[in-house]
């Protein structure tokens, strides 16, 4: 028992980040499952992180309300953004969302109340581990059930063939937008939880590198189902902690794993969990996103 307690104390931060990263990975999974490559979720997390932290710090909002407001703010921003960028596809869509993320980062640097480059310090540490994992459970459940609903089938149809999907009566733009906004909401919730878990936030935490990292969680984990992104987040968050003694080489490990997975397990680590041949065939990965 004592050993377990020690383990938790030592790795509390890492365990928390596993949950937070898993939520972010699921947030980008929604658009990937629809066949769209977007890189705006780090920025949505940032918007909600700053929004909710400022609400608890400066406006005295209760924690849950601040979290909800932050996530809603991110979703509210994603709606007009999605409505404009979803006329683009492929790399163009990815770059447009990436540019949006950088605009957010620069905007945070420019607004004095955010503490600019120094970051926002002294955020009340309200987030408990169970908040993170209860949220993850709910989000993973919702995503998993949506996947097998009419909505999930419509998303899959859009991923497989957009034009044919439209011929079945699916309003393609609206479904893409729904996946994007729901993703922003989830990213926002995770961002708010993260801000109150970590005491301080900085604009760079929500930039390009972070957006790419979130994408890597989801793609390396695999996107046939919700377990892939969670697995990817677990691996890439736990690995650096496990490799602490080899800290200098850990980027190299991560890079090698990334290349190996893409080359040899193109549909992600989730492939390893699928034992039946048919199940393996039906997995969806980077291979299926244009």
């Amino acid at each position: 028992m004592d050993g377990l307690q020690q383990f938790f104390d030592a790795y509390q931060t890492t365990i928390g980040f596993i949950g937070l990263n898993a939520m972010l990975a699921l947030s980008v999974w929604l658009t990937l499952y629809t066949g769209q490559l977007t890189l705006g979720n780090a920025a949505f997390a940032g918007i909600a992180a700053y929004g909710s932290a400022l609400l608890t710090m400066k406006a005295g909002y209760p924690f849950p309300l601040a979290l909800a407001c932050g996530a809603l703010l991110a979703a509210a921003v994603s709606l007009p953004l999605g409505a404009t960028v979803f006329r683009l596809r492929g790399v163009y869509l990815a770059i447009a969302t990436l540019a949006f993320g950088e605009v957010v980062r620069v905007a945070i640097l420019a607004i004095p109340i955010t503490g600019r480059g120094q970051g926002l310090v002294g955020i009340p540490p309200k987030t408990e581990l169970w908040h993170i994992f209860a949220s993850l459970l709910v989000i993973a459940y919702v995503c998993a059930r949506l996947r097998i609903s009419t909505v999930g089938r419509a998303w899959a149809a859009i991923r497989e063939d957009e034009l044919a999907a439209a011929s079945q009566g699916i309003p393609v733009r609206r479904y893409k937008l729904a996946a994007f906004v729901l993703g922003a909401l989830i990213a926002g919730w995770a961002g708010g939880l993260g801000a109150h878990f970590d005491f301080a936030i900085q604009p760079d935490e929500f930039g390009f590198a972070r957006a790419v990292q979130i994408l890597v969680f989801a793609v390396v984990g695999g996107i046939p189902n919700v377990f892939g992104p969670i697995l990817g987040a677990l691996l890439f968050t736990a690995l650096p902690a496990v490799l602490q003694p080899l800290q200098e080489y850990r980027d190299i490990f991560q890079g090698v794993i990334l290349v190996l997975v893409i080359v040899y397990l193109p549909r992600g680590l989730a492939t390893l969990l699928e034992l039946r041949r048919t199940a393996r065939l039906r997995t969806v990965g980077a291979e299926d996103v244009a």
Binding site: D251, Q254, G255, I257, L258, V259, I262, E287, V289
Partner: peptide, 22 residues
């Protein structure tokens, strides 16, 4: 194996991590 562009992009991220660390 005719993988789509996203796979190559992810793969290049891996190489980038390795190079920068070296």
């Amino acid at each position: 194996r005719n993988a789509p562009p996203l796979s190559a992009m992810i793969s290049s991220i891996g190489v980038s991590l390795i190079l920068i660390r070296l």
